[in-house]
């Protein structure tokens, strides 16, 4: 049996998370196919076909699929997925939105946020905000799962020689339609793919003060993140949030600035290779998991760090 991976893309480029999910699929054993559904997404399909280990790309290229709405993609996964042993998607907001809808149509109990694969039916997933790890064994005929990209090595985006097959798509749905979007524009690397992430918390104090975090990030070529407290306070937009219900990151270096270290935040970054905490409260829980801690006033420390680094 083959494995179907749902590609994450914006009709122009294949998102790196897809490479990690293909990496997870390789651990399951079986031919790997990738579903690219979108509009004018030929370049994405070609890029997916070149990925290491990909045997086939199913391309559903049709203008109503431009925004990849769940009401269109789930039926497509339902129709195409019946003949697969596993259906995988990255645990991004897109994967989380679409995959459970497809799983229900297939009458399958999805496994969310897989962080380790034991065998073709046994998986590990975090529960209780990562305070416990459950090993679960699925008895469903098809295993439908979202995969945490940071827990699996990415395959190379070259060297593969998959074939691209066009597939017919069903009539567009009449239940939902796209009405607009406000995407954060940034020259910085994507939060979930960056090698260095610098995050600010409530201690940063204001939207204006966040500029010193951004300045340091730009010097290091880092992505900027935030705690829920900083997002709730309106210092930065929602898509900066790192944590249990925000983004899960695992960079080589994570610098937490003015972040106390609530469990919900730690759940989103504790797999980082090196963690640095800068906080004026020496008792803050973040120091309990940081490799290097520096107690002091961030408004003195950050500019100094930025000038010396």
């Amino acid at each position: 049996m083959a494995i179907l991976v749902l590609a994450e893309h914006d009709n122009k480029t294949l998102k790196p998370a897809t490479l990690n999910v293909i990496g997870a699929a390789k651990k399951l054993g079986g031919e790997i196919h990738v579903l690219v559904a979108g509009a004018a997404c030929g370049a994405v399909a070609d890029a997916a076909a070149k990925c290491e280990g990909v045997a086939k790309v199913l391309k559903a290229d049709n203008s109503p699929l431009e925004h990849q709405l769940a009401e269109d993609i789930a039926p497509l996964l339902h129709e195409q997925g019946k003949n697969y042993s596993h259906i995988l998607a990255p645990a991004t907001t897109h994967g989380k939105n679409v995959l459970p809808r497809a799983a229900a149509l297939l009458d399958v109990q999805q496994i969310s946020d897989v962080i380790a694969i034991h065998d073709a039916e046994t998986f590990e997933r975090p529960v209780y905000a990562g305070n416990a790890i459950a090993t679960v064994k699925s008895s469903d005929k098809i295993k439908v799962m979202t995969v945490r990209p940071t827990n699996f090595d990415a395959v190379k985006n070259s060297g593969g020689s998959g074939v691209v097959n066009e597939i017919n798509t069903a009539t567009p749905n009449t239940l939902s339609s796209f009405a607009g979007q406000e995407l954060s524009k940034s020259e910085r690397p994507e939060l979930t793919a960056a090698k260095i992430v610098i995050s600010g918390g409530r201690g940063v104090g204001s939207k204006e003060n966040f500029a010193i975090i951004e300045k340091l990030a730009d010097k290091l070529g880092a992505a900027v993140g935030a705690s829920r407290a900083a997002v709730d306070a309106g210092y930065v937009p929602n898509d900066y949030q790192v944590g249990q219900t925000g983004k899960i990151v695992a960079p080589d270096l994570y610098i937490a600035i003015g972040i106390s270290g609530a469990i919900q935040h730690l759940a989103g970054m504790k797999d980082s290779k090196i963690i640095v905490a800068i906080n004026k409260d020496g008792e803050a829980p973040i120091f309990g998991i940081a490799d290097y801690g520096l107690v002091g006033d961030l408004f003195q420390i950050i500019p100094e760090l930025e000038s010396k680094i």
Binding site: T93, S176, F178, A179, Q181, L183, S184, P237, D239
Partner: peptide, 9 residues
């Protein structure tokens, strides 16, 4: 969503 905000009807 991961990139920001999206509005649907």
């Amino acid at each position: 969503i991961d990139g920001g905000l999206e509005t649907l009807s």
